[in-house]
Nucleic acid binder design. Structure first.
Length: 928
RNA sequence: GCGGGGGUAGCCAAGCGGCUAAAGGCGAACGCCUCAAGAGCGUUUCUCGCAGGAGUUCAGGGGUUCGAUUCCCUUCCCCCGCACCA
C-alpha cells in the first residue's frame, strides 16, 4: 500500500473510532485506570516519547478488549521555567533556538513569532502533541485534557499544598542555590554554559584569631582541627580585611564577595597582601597558637582563600610543609596525628606521599592521594582516644556542630568544580535563598509510611524496587517553591510559585474529574470542595455539595489508579514524590497500586536528544511508515523497561511484516476449502498462543506478546499450509476461526490494520471493543501437536542426511521403534534418577532376555530424553503417541516435501541395518 | 565518588542449573516462484563432518556442582540517576 492510501485508511479508522475512547463510570463494571507521566510540551514529540505513550495504549486496548472500562487520560505539564528561557532566546533571535524550532520542529513562521510569549509555546505544542498522539492511534479520553496552569487545576494545587502544610510537611527555611548575579535569579542545569555537574558543598569555617581579626579557614574535615600545625596563605594573593556581620575577618577578595551572597553583611575595609601574613601567629582554642605559612597551592577563589594545615592527614599540607622544610625553613613543625586508620601508620598523609615518591606539591598525583587518604580515614578512621575515640564518620559532623555552637564557626558554601558560568556568560555563585518553602521528605515518619505503602505497590520490572527504596531513604527536604516560571502561586505566600515537580504528584486523581470540574465556577473550588471531592470530608465550609457529588462519585469509581507508567529516570524524583504525596494526602485505600518503569530510547545506537538534533520526530515516523508499523516496531523491538534502538531499516521490515499479515488473512478468507485433517492441530496451537499472549500482556511484556501473537501464529500457519495437499489453502472453518482470533490478538498493537481486517472478516463493530480471545483448554490436542512435532523433527533429520550424502537418493525408509523400546522410554522417562534408570530397565525379565540390545537401547533412550524438552517428554509419557498412524497419515506429505518415495515400516520388519537404531520419537532413517 | 541496571552469535534480543550451538526478528547467501522483482516460499548462516553427529563458545579470571550461559567471588567495559530541574 502506498503512503497516501495508507494515510487515508488510517484517517478512516480514526473517524470510525470517533469518541469511542471517552469513558464514563459504569457502576458494577470492572475498571482499569492507567496513567502516564504527562509531557512538558516545549518541543515536538520524537519516537522516544512515542513509545512512552504507546505502551500504555497497548495495555489500555488489551484491557478494554477484556471487558474492562479503561481510562487512559492525557494532560500537559506546562509549569516551570524552561519555556521562559526558550521564549527569551527566541525573542533574542538566538540562532540555535531559532534553528531548533524552525527547522527541526518545523514551527510555522507566524507561530514562531508568537513564541516570545512562553504560554504560546506550550499552547502550540500541546495541540501538536494531541494531534500526533491521535495520529498514532492512542486511545485517550481527550475530554479530560488540561494544562497545569488552568485556573481549576491551580485551585487543586492550592488545596494540595495547603493540605500538606496542615499536616506539617511544608516548612520554611534557607537554602543554598546556584545563582547568577547578572540575571538576578537562581539557575538550573539547563541555564548553565559551563559547570552543570558542579555541586554545592558545605564548608565549615574554623575561625582563627589574629589579634582583633578573625581568620576563617574553610574545611570539609572539621574534626582535624585538633591536628592543625599552621595555616596556609598564598603570598601572591591579595587578601582583604572586611567587616563581616560587625566583626573583622580576613579573607581573599573573592571570598568577601561570595560571603555577601551567603547571609553576611560584608564591607571591605582594606587590602592585605598575602605576603604580609606570612609568619604571623594565629590561634584557635582547639589548635592552639600556630604560624601562618606561605603555599602556592592555595586558591583565593576556593572558599575563604585561607587553609588550615593538617600535615598528618592531608597530603597537600604535608607536601607543602616538606617543600618548605627541604629549604631549611620551619623545620620545627611536626605533623600532629589525631586519627588512627587500620592499615595505615601514624601519619597517613606522610605515608601516602612518601610511598608515591612525590617530589613536590606540584605533582599531578596529589589529588588522587588526597582522595585515597580522605577515603580511608572517613571509612575506617577513628579519633585518638584522648579526643573521644569516635569514628571519623560521626566525629566530622559532631565537631563541626561543636565549632559552630561554641567556637564562632560559620558555614560557607562553594562549588566543588569550577568555573560555573551562566548562559548569560556571567559567573555563577552560591547564594542562600530565604523564606524558601520545603517539603519535608526527610521526615522519618513520612518516609516510613511511604515505604509501607511501597511494599504493596506492584513494580514492573521488579528490579526497580531497590531503587525506589533507596530513593525514599535518600531524599532530603525539597525546595518546593520557585520565583520564576509558569505555575500556581502559593496561597499563603503569593510571592512564590509552587515548584513544577511538586505540582504534579497527585494529578492522576484530577483526571478522574477533569472534564466535569471545568463546568464548575472556579470560585466554588475552595479547599473544602476538594476535601469533599477527594477525601469525602463534608465540613461546614463545604458549599455546592450537590454539584460536586457526581464528581466525588466518579473519582471513587476510578481511584486508586491501577498503573502509572514513566521513564526510569523519574524514579529518583517524580515517581517517588508521588508516593510521598499520595501517602500524605490519601487514605490507605487510595494509594498507588502499580508502576511500570520504561527504558530509554536510542536512535541508530546513540542517545536521543533534541538539543543535539539526534531525534526522529514521531510525526515523521508515522508519515513515513504508518502508525501501525511505528507501533509494532516500538512494542516489539524490546520490552518496555529495556532500552530500544530505532533503526529505519528495521522499521521498514516491520512494515513488510504487517503487510504480510494482512495479505495472509485476506487470502485465507478467500482461499479456504473443505476441512482438512490438521485443522484441529492449528486450532490447538492457537489456544496456546492465545494463553501466552494474554499472560504476556497481563505483565506488560509487549515484545513477548508480539512474539507469540505475531510470529508464533505465523510460523504455525506456514507449517499448516505446508501440510496441505498441493493447491489447497486449508479448511475454511479453521482459517476463519484462526483469523478472527489473530486479528483480535494483534488489535492492541496494530489497531488500524486490525480494524480494517475485522470489517473484512464480516464482523460488526470495532475490533477495539471486540472480546479478547479466550484460550479454550478443550480445544487443546496435545497428541496432534506431538504428532506434528514428530513429523517436523523427522523431516529435518531426513533433510540433513540428504544434504550430507554425496549419492543421488532414490527412496527413503522410515523405520519406527518397536513397542519394547517405548517401554524402555517410559520407564526411563518416569524414573527419578536417570543415571540408575538403565539398571531399572534391566530388572525387567523381558528386557534381560534381550540382553545387550536392551542395554544399548536404554542408554540411547537416556541420551535422547536428556535432549528433548521436558514438556515434550511429559507429553509422550502421558499420551500414547501412535507413531505408525502419524506416519501413515503423512506419507504423501513427506514424499511431496522430499520429492522421493517414502516407505514407513516397523523397525523389526526392515532389512536395513540402520533400522535397529530406531528410537521412540526418533525413527531410524535409511536413504537408498 | 555514591546508588541502580547490564555485557549472549554480523546486529537486536530470548534464555537464568541438564531442554542450549543457544527461540524469535533483522541482515546476509543460495534455491524455488516469476517477464522481472526490493514481494512470497524453502534452505543455510561458530568450526569440522559421505548418515541424523562431533568439537569449541554465552565480557575476562577464579570457584561451587556429576553437570553452568544460568549459582558465588573478582576484574574490565557500557547505560541510568545523584535534586531544586522537566
Amino acid at each position: 500500500m502506498d503512503n497516501d492510501s495508507l494515510q487515508a485508511e488510517e484517517e478512516a479508522v480514526r473517524s470510525a473510532w470517533g469518541t469511542a475512547f471517552q469513558v464514563d463510570p459504569a457502576p458494577g463494571a470492572e475498571r482499569y485506570y492507567l496513567t502516564v507521566a504527562y509531557p512538558y510540551p516545549s518541543g515536538a514529540m520524537h519516537v522516544g516519547h512515542g513509545r512512552t505513550y504507546l505502551v500504555p495504549d497497548v495495555v489500555a486496548r488489551f484491557w478494554r478488549m477484556r471487558g474492562r472500562r479503561v481510562l487512559y487520560p492525557m494532560a500537559f505539564h506546562v509549569t516551570g521555567a524552561p519555556v521562559i528561557g526558550i521564549s527569551k532566546r527566541i525573542a533574542n533571535r538566538d540562532p540555535a533556538a531559532i534553528r531548533l524550532y524552525r527547522d527541526l520542529y518545523r514551527v510555522p513562521p507566524d507561530v514562531l513569532e508568537r513564541f516570545v510569549d512562553p504560554v504560546e509555546i506550550v499552547r502550540h505544542f500541546s495541540d501538536e502533541y494531541e494531534r500526533v498522539m491521535r495520529m498514532a492511534g492512542l486511545s485517550i479520553d481527550w475530554r479530560r485534557r488540561f494544562t497545569t496552569v488552568d485556573p481549576h487545576y491551580s485551585r487543586f494545587i492550592e488545596w494540595q499544598v495547603g493540605r500538606l502544610r496542615e499536616k506539617g510537611f511544608v516548612v520554611r527555611g534557607a537554602h543554598p542555590v546556584r545563582y547568577c548575579p547578572l540575571c538576578d535569579n537562581p539557575v538550573g542545569d539547563h541555564d548553565l554554559l559551563e559547570g552543570d555537574r558542579a555541586e554545592v558543598i558545605r564548608f565549615v569555617l574554623v575561625m582563627f584569631r589574629w589579634g582583633e581579626t578573625l581568620v576563617p579557614t574553610a574545611t570539609l574535615r572539621p574534626e582535624t582541627v585538633y591536628g592543625v600545625t599552621n595555616l596556609w596563605v598564598n603570598p601572591e594573593v591579595t587578601y582583604v580585611r572586611a567587616e563581616v556581620d560587625g566583626k573583622a575577618w580576613l579573607v581573599s577578595r573573592e571570598a568577601a564577595e561570595k560571603l555577601s551572597l551567603q547571609d553576611h553583611e560584608v564591607r571591605v575595609l582594606e587590602e592585605v597582601p598575602g605576603s604580609s601574613l606570612v609568619d604571623q601567629v594565629v590561634s584557635h582554642p582547639l589548635s592552639g597558637d600556630v604560624p601562618v605559612l606561605p603555599a602556592s597551592f592555595v586558591d583565593p577563589d576556593m572558599a575563604t582563600g585561607i587553609v588550615m594545615s593538617v600535615p598528618a592527614h592531608a597530603p597537600f599540607d604535608y607536601i607543602a610543609l616538606r617543600d618548605l622544610q627541604q629549604e631549611g625553613r620551619y623545620t620545627g613543625i611536626v605533623p600532629k596525628p589525631l586519627i588512627t586508620v587500620e592499615g595505615w601508620g601514624e601519619c597517613p598523609a606522610k605515608e601516602a606521599v612518601e610511598r608515591a615518591k612525590v617530589a613536590n606539591q606540584h605533582d599531578a598525583r596529589m589529588d588522587a592521594l588526597t582522595q585515597e587518604v580522605y577515603g580511608a580515614e572517613f571509612a575506617k578512621g577513628r579519633l585518638h582516644a584522648r579526643l573521644g575515640g569516635l569514628p571519623v564518620r560521626e566525629a566530622r559532623d559532631a565537631i563541626g556542630d561543636l565549632l559552630i555552637a561554641e567556637h564562632g564557626s560559620a558555614v560557607m558554601y562553594e562549588f566543588d568544580t569550577r568555573p560555573v558560568v551562566c548562559r548569560c556568560s556571567s559567573r555563577v555563585y552560591v547564594k542562600i535563598l530565604h523564606d524558601q518553602w520545603f517539603l519535608t521528605y526527610s521526615d522519618p515518619a513520612w518516609k516510613e509510611l511511604v515505604k509501607e505503602y511501597l511494599s504493596g505497590v506492584s513494580l514492573v520490572p521488579p528490579e526497580v524496587r531497590a531503587e525506589f527504596e533507596r530513593t525514599i531513604d535518600w531524599l532530603k527536604d525539597w525546595a518546593a517553591t520557585r520565583r520564576v516560571g509558569l505555575g500556581t502561586r502559593l496561597p499563603w505566600d503569593p510571592t512564590w510559585l509552587v515548584e513544577p515537580l511538586s505540582d504534579s504528584t497527585i494529578y492522576m486523581a484530577y483526571y478522574t474529574i477533569a472534564h466535569r470540574i471545568r463546568e464548575l465556577d472556579p470560585a466554588l473550588l475552595t479547599p473544602a470542595a476538594f476535601d469533599y471531592l477527594f477525601l469525602g470530608i463534608e465540613g461546614e465550609e463545604l458549599e455546592g455539595r450537590e454539584a460536586l457529588a457526581p464528581l466525588r462519585e466518579e473519582f471513587l469509581y476510578w481511584y486508586p489508579y491501577d498503573y502509572r507508567f514513566s521513564a526510569k529516570d523519574l524514579i529518583s524524583n517524580h515517581l517517588t514524590f508521588q508516593l510521598f504525596h499520595h501517602a500524605a494526602i490519601f487514605p490507605p485505600g487510595l494509594q498507588p497500586r502499580g508502576m511500570v518503569v520504561f527504558g530509554m530510547g536510542l536512535l541508530n545506537g546513540a542517545k536521543m536528544s533534541s538539543s543535539k538534533g539526534n531525534v526522529f520526530l514521531l510525526e515523521d515516523a508515522l508519515a513515513e511508515f504508518g502508525a501501525d508499523t511505528v507501533r509494532m516496531f516500538l512494542m516489539g523491538s524490546a520490552e518496555p523497561w529495556q532500552d530500544f534502538d530505532w533503526r529505519n531499516e528495521l522499521v521498514a521490515s516491520t512494515r513488510r511484516q504487517i503487510e504480510r499479515f494482512e495479505t495472509t488473512v485476506l487470502d485465507s478468507l478467500r482461499g479456504g476449502g473443505p476441512p482438512s485433517p490438521i485443522d484441529d492441530w492449528l486450532l490447538s496451537r492457537l489456544q496456546r498462543h492465545v494463553a501466552r499472549t494474554t499472560r504476556a500482556l497481563e505483565s506488560f511484556q509487549t515484545r513477548q506478546a508480539l512474539q507469540e501473537a505475531f510470529f508464533g501464529i505465523e510460523a504455525d500457519l506456514r507449517w499448516y499450509v505446508r501440510r496441505q495437499p498441493a493447491g489447497s489453502a486449508g479448511g475454511a472453518g479453521a482459517l476463519q476461526e484462526l483469523c478472527s482470533a489473530w486479528v483480535r490478538l494483534l488489535a492492541p498493537f496494530i489497531p488500524f490494520t486490525c480494524e480494517r481486517l475485522w470489517e473484512a472478516l464480516g464482523q460488526d463493530g470495532l475490533v477495539s471493543f471486540a472480546p479478547w480471545p479466550l484460550a479454550d483448554p478443550e480445544r487443546g490436542r496435545p497428541e496432534l501437536e506431538l504428532g506434528e512435532e514428530l513429523l517436523s523433527r523427522t523431516l529435518e533429520d531426513v533433510e540433513s542426511i540428504l544434504k550430507l550424502l554425496p549419492i543421488t537418493p532414490k527412496a527413503v525408509e522410515i523405520a519406527l521403534a518397536p513397542d519394547w523400546k517405548w517401554d524402555v522410554f517410559r520407564t526411563i522417562a518416569a524414573s527419578e534418577d536417570r543415571t540408575t534408570a538403565v539398571r531399572a530397565v534391566m530388572q525387567d525379565e523381558g528386557m534381560r532376555r534381550r540382553g545387550k540390545e536392551a542395554a544399548d537401547a536404554a542408554r540411547q533412550v537416556t541420551t535422547l530424553i536428556h535432549r528433548l524438552p521436558p514438556a515434550l517428554v511429559d507429553g509422550l509419557l502421558r499420551l500414547d503417541l501412535d507413531e505408525p498412524a502419524v506416519f501413515a497419515g503423512a506419507r504423501e506429505f513427506l514424499e511431496q516435501e522430499l520429492g522421493l518415495p517414502v516407505r514407513v515400516v516397523g523397525a523389526e520388519e526392515s532389512d536395513n541395518l540402520k533400522a535397529g537404531m530406531a528410537l521412540p520419537f526418533k525413527p531410524a532413517i535409511t536413504v537408498e
